[in-house]
Design a protein around this nucleic acid. Structure first.
Length: 530
RNA sequence: GGGCCGCUAGCUCAGCUGGCAGAGCAACGCCCUUUUAAGGCGUGGGUCACUGGUUCGAACCCAGUGCGGCUCACCA
C-alpha cells in the first residue's frame, strides 16, 4: 500500500485488521482461520468465507504484521447426505454415516471423495491470489493429534453440557459425552459412548454392527469432537485470532455463541475476533446448468465470466454482512464497468484532501482486488460492450482484436487477453440472443432481398469503396443516408437489410461505427455482390 | 420465541468511525442530417420507512414502532 498522505482506510478489511490488533494485543504473528466441510462441490458461497479471510489477512500484512493464514478442511465430518449433483448416487448412499475422507471419489481418481472436492478448490485458489496453509482435520484426528483437546472436553463434560443446554430445547441426557466415535469396525458414527476412564480410555458400542470396545485417545483414529466443541478446541490448538462465519453460526444460540463459552471456560482463551458474512445468490443462469437438481455454482464457473481481479472486486467491494448476487446476465457488463471505473480512479489520484477521501475508498478496494500486486501501467481500458462486439466481429480471435485496437501496450496484453476470454465466454454462454451476432462469411450465399434493397446494398458498397478511406465516421454518415435517399426507401427499411446482409439479423450495433470496425475490404466483399 | 440484516429517486443500489443526499438504468430534452444493442451534452425527479432522543449539525449514533428477508433453537 502506498502511504504518502493517504487518508486512513475505512475499508472493512482494514477495520477488522485494526480490531484484531486492538483486541488480541500486539503479537509476533496473528493466526487467521477459515474452514469448510468438503461434503460436496465447494460452491461460491463457501468461497466468501475464504476470500473474506484473505482480505483481512492482506489488510494485516499491509500493516506490517506477520500472519498465518490457515484453512481447515473438515474432512473428518460425517457424510450425512448425498448431494444431488453427484454421480453414482447408489454407491454414495452406502457410505452414509462414515467420515467423508473414507468415501470414494466418484468424480475421478482422487484418493477420496473429500480429497476430490478439496483439490478442485485448492488448484483454483492461487488463480485469485489466495494461498492459505491447508490443514486436514481427518489427518489430525486420525493421528490423535487432538488427544489432549478431546480429553479436556471429557474432563469438562458437565460444563459443556450446561453450556449447550442453555440454547437447546431438549436437554442433553446425563449419560451424554462430548465426543463422537466412528466405529473401528464399520467406520460409521452410529455409536454410543458408554464410558470414560477419566484418562484416555473411551468405551463405545456400535449400534449398526454391534462392535464394542475401549479405545485409547492417544492412539485411536476413531474419536472426534462434535462441531460445537471441535471448533473451540481448534481455536486453542492453533491459537486462532480471527475467524469469520456465516450467519447460520452467528445467531444467538448458534454454534459461535456456544463455542465462545466453551473456548473461555474449557480451553481457557477468548474466542477469536469474528464477523458474520451473509450468503450470496446467483442471478441469470436460468436453466443453463441446472436441470434436475440444485444448481451448484462454484469458483470455476464464476471465473469463466469474471477475471480474477473482478471476482475479488465483487467481494472486496461489498461489506461482508450484506447479501449480494453474482450475476451471469447483463449485469456482468455493469460489474466490469464499475471495476474499470474503480481502476481509472486508482490511477488518477486527486490532490485536494476532500477528493482524496473519496478516492481512498475506491483505491483501497482496487488494491485488495489485485491478484499479484498493482500493475505498473494502467490496464488497457475498453468497455466490455465494445470488446464483446469486436470479439464477435473477429469470431473470438483476441489477437486480431488487439491488432485492430492498435494501441495496446505490451504490458497490457496479458490482462486484456484474460478480460477478452471472459467476455467471449459470456457472449457465447450467457448473453441474451439480441446481443449476439456473427459476421457473415464471404462464401455464404446472398440473402434474399427485393430489387430495391439489392440496389441499396450495392450502392452502399460502392459508396464505401469510394469514400470510407477519406471520410471519418461523421462525414461518412452522410453517404450512408444518401443511399436511402437516392433510392427513396425509408431508413427504417434500409437499416435492417444492411444488418441482414452483414450478420443475418435485423438489428445490430450502431451502424456507422459498426461499418468502420468491420472495414472496407470485408464490407465490399459482403455487400458488393448484390 | 430469540438473533441478525434491510427499508435512500420510477427501478437496482452506493453513501454508515456524524459535515452541502449520490451513481447506474429508466424518463424527458437537445446534438451526432434519423429510431434500433456500444455515442455526446443537459434536465427533472427525494418526508433517506415511522416516532422520539443525543448533537452546533443525523440517512448515518441511541431508544422504540411498522414492513420485508434471513437465521438459530437437530446436525454440521
Amino acid at each position: 500500500m502506498s502511504n504518502e498522505n493517504r487518508p486512513k482506510s475505512s475499508h472493512w478489511a482494514d477495520i477488522n485488521a485494526e480490531k484484531i490488533i486492538r483486541e488480541k494485543g500486539k503479537k509476533e504473528h496473528y493466526t487467521c482461520a477459515s474452514g469448510i466441510t468438503p461434503s460436496g462441490t465447494v460452491h461460491i458461497g463457501n468461497f466468501r468465507e475464504i476470500i473474506s479471510v484473505d482480505l483481512v489477512v492482506r489488510a494485516l500484512r499491509d500493516k506490517g504484521e506477520n500472519v498465518r493464514f490457515i484453512y481447515s478442511w473438515d474432512d473428518y465430518d460425517v457424510f450425512r447426505k448425498v448431494p444431488k449433483n453427484m454421480p453414482k448416487q447408489e454407491l454414495l448412499e452406502t457410505f452414509l454415516r462414515k467420515p467423508i475422507t473414507l468415501v470414494p471419489d466418484v468424480l475421478g481418481t482422487e484418493e477420496s471423495y473429500a480429497r476430490a472436492n478439496e483439490k478442485n478448490l485448492e488448484e483454483l485458489l492461487p488463480v485469485v491470489g489466495v494461498k492459505p496453509e491447508y490443514i486436514y482435520q481427518a489427518s489430525k484426528y486420525r493421528n490423535s493429534e487432538y488427544a489432549e483437546g478431546i480429553k479436556k472436553a471429557l474432563e469438562n463434560r458437565d460444563v459443556i453440557r450446561r453450556q449447550l443446554n442453555e440454547s437447546r430445547t431438549t436437554d442433553l441426557p446425563d449419560d451424554w459425552y462430548p465426543v463422537s466415535v466412528f466405529c473401528a469396525k464399520c467406520d460409521r458414527d452410529t455409536t454410543k459412548v458408554t464410558g470414560w476412564d477419566g484418562h484416555y480410555g473411551v468405551e463405545y458400542e456400535c449400534e449398526s454392527c454391534g462392535n464394542k470396545e475401549t479405545v485409547d485417545l492417544k492412539t485411536t483414529a476413531a474419536v472426534k469432537l462434535p462441531w460445537r466443541i471441535d471448533w473451540p478446541m481448534r481455536w486453542a490448538y492453533e491459537d486462532v485470532d480471527f475467524e469469520p462465519a456465516g450467519k447460520d453460526h452467528h445467531s444467538e444460540g448458534g454454534s459461535f455463541d456456544t463455542a465462545r463459552k466453551t473456548s473461555l471456560e474449557v480451553y481457557g482463551q477468548e474466542a477469536p475476533v469474528t464477523f458474520q458474512y451473509d450468503f450470496i445468490s446467483i442471478k441469470g443462469r436460468g436453466g443453463k446448468i441446472s436441470s434436475s437438481t440444485g444448481e451448484v455454482v462454484s469458483l470455476i464457473d464464476v471465473l469463466e465470466v469474471y477475471t480474477p481481479e473482478v471476482t475479488r472486486y465483487m467481494f472486496a467491494g461489498t461489506r461482508p454482512n450484506t447479501e449480494f448476487s453474482i450475476s451471469f446476465d447483463l449485469d456482468v457488463l455493469k460489474i466490469y464497468e464499475d471495476y474499470d471505473k474503480c481502476e481509472r480512479t486508482y490511477f488518477e489520484k486527486p490532490e485536494s484532501p476532500k477528493a482524496l477521501k473519496k478516492w481512498e475508498k475506491q483505491a483501497r478496494i482496487y488494491e485488495l482486488s489485485q491478484v499479484d500486486g498493482i500493475p505498473e501501467v494502467m490496464p488497457y481500458q475498453i468497455q466490455i460492450r465494445l470488446l464483446s462486439t469486436l470479439l464477435q466481429i473477429f469470431s473470438g480471435d483476441v489477437d486480431r482484436v488487439i491488432e485492430y485496437l492498435g494501441d495496446v501496450k505490451p504490458q497490457q496484453v496479458d490482462k486484456l487477453k484474460a478480460k477478452a476470454q471472459c467476455a467471449w465466454n459470456w457472449v457465447k454462454n450467457f448473453a441474451p440472443e439480441d446481443f449476439k451476432f456473427s459476421l457473415r462469411e464471404d462464401t455464404d450465399d446472398k440473402i434474399e432481398v427485393g430489387e430495391v434493397e439489392g440496389k441499396a446494398l450495392k450502392l452502399l458498397s460502392d459508396k464505401i469503396e469510394a469514400y470510407m478511406d477519406s471520410c471519418d465516421e461523421k462525414e461518412f454518415s452522410t453517404h450512408l443516408y444518401d443511399v436511402a435517399r437516392e433510392l427513396e426507401i425509408e431508413t427504417s427499411d434500409f437499416f435492417p437489410v444492411v444488418y441482414k446482409a452483414l450478420i443475418s439479423k435485423e438489428k445490430g450495433p450502431r451502424l456507422i461505427s459498426f461499418l468502420y470496425i468491420i472495414g472496407k475490404e470485408k464490407l465490399v466483399s459482403l455487400l458488393g455482390k448484390y
